[in-house]
């Protein structure tokens, strides 16, 4: 039997869906279809898109590599200040990205608290580099994979890990063969969200890493800059971003994450 939906719910849902879809539809309506190819080459879409994909994938990889252990510590660790740590981890979601960018600047910038040392002792400068764009993007998008994985770990029946220990599995073996595969759906969902957030990152990146085509100018920055020169080009770039994100989310959304 199909669920019967109250009319109020349907009406509000329609309103919500319209609200979300309207800007996307408007982008399609206003796109300069007749000079699409020209607009594309004019604003350096392919360079920005390649950089965006590289930066978002790198940020996702780093987020998973350190975010999953962080989620494990938050879910299983028992230490004073754990709730404080969790709040701090969530902070980048709440903060305006520009604030995150300013924070990164005073921490890791050329004259920042840690960045000064990186620059003077090791000759490493993150600002105005692709690595800096990855750092800024990771900062903003990592909390999503941490939260999703932590929720997965909290929902995991502890009996499985105990059974694995009783079967002779060392702590590391149990984590690798039992814990990790069992939270894989949540981890994957979190990674997809992290990637999507990374692809759309703007504020922290432009504040911390600046805006230079081919080095730090990802798609959102290219859209922002194109607005000044060529509003039509900005719409084209926005559409590309929409199409890429939607295709990946639809393709991965159900299959990989098991959330469908």
């Amino acid at each position: 039997m199909r669920a019967r939906l109250p009319l109020v719910i349907v009406a509000l849902a329609s309103l919500g869906a319209t609200f979300v879809l309207l800007p996307v539809v408007a982008l399609f309506v206003r796109a300069p279809w007749n000079r699409l190819a020209g607009a594309l080459s004019g604003v350096g879409a392919s360079t920005a898109l390649r950089l965006s994909i590289e930066v978002s994938l790198a940020a996702t990889a780093i987020s998973v590599a350190v975010g999953v252990p962080l989620a494990w510590v938050l879910a299983r660790g028992e230490f004073p200040g754990r709730s404080l740590l969790r709040a701090a981890v969530v902070l980048p979601i709440v903060l305006p990205p520009v604030v995150g960018g300013v924070g990164l600047l005073v921490a890791l910038g050329r004259s920042g608290v840690v960045g000064r040392w990186l620059h003077d002792a090791l000759g490493i400068q993150l600002t105005f580099t692709t690595a800096g764009a990855v750092v800024a993007t990771t900062f903003v998008s990592m909390p999503l994979v941490v939260l999703a994985t932590e929720a997965g770990l909290r929902g995991l029946d502890l009996r499985y890990e105990r059974a694995a220990a009783a079967m002779g599995g060392s702590a590391w073996y149990v984590f690798r063969r039992v814990t990790l595969p069992m939270v894989a759906p949540q981890l994957a969902a979190g990674a997809v969200l992290t990637w999507a957030r990374a692809l759309g990152e703007f504020g922290a990146t432009i504040t911390f890493a600046g805006n230079l085509a081919g080095r730090t100018q990802t798609m959102p920055l290219a859209v922002f800059e194109a607005r000044q020169i060529d509003p039509g080009g900005a719409i084209v770039l926005s559409l590309i971003l929409v199409v890429v994100s939607v295709s990946v989310l639809v393709a991965l959304g159900g299959r990989l994450t098991g959330l469908r």
């Binding site: 050329r110 004259s111 100018q217």
Partner: peptide
């Protein structure tokens, strides 16, 4: 030598006051 194309003059100044550029 350009390392960043900023959105406006205020952002250019911010990059200088922070010592990054």
């Amino acid at each position: 030598n350009v390392v960043s194309n900023e959105d406006d003059d205020a952002s250019v100044v911010a990059k200088i006051t922070s010592g990054e550029a």
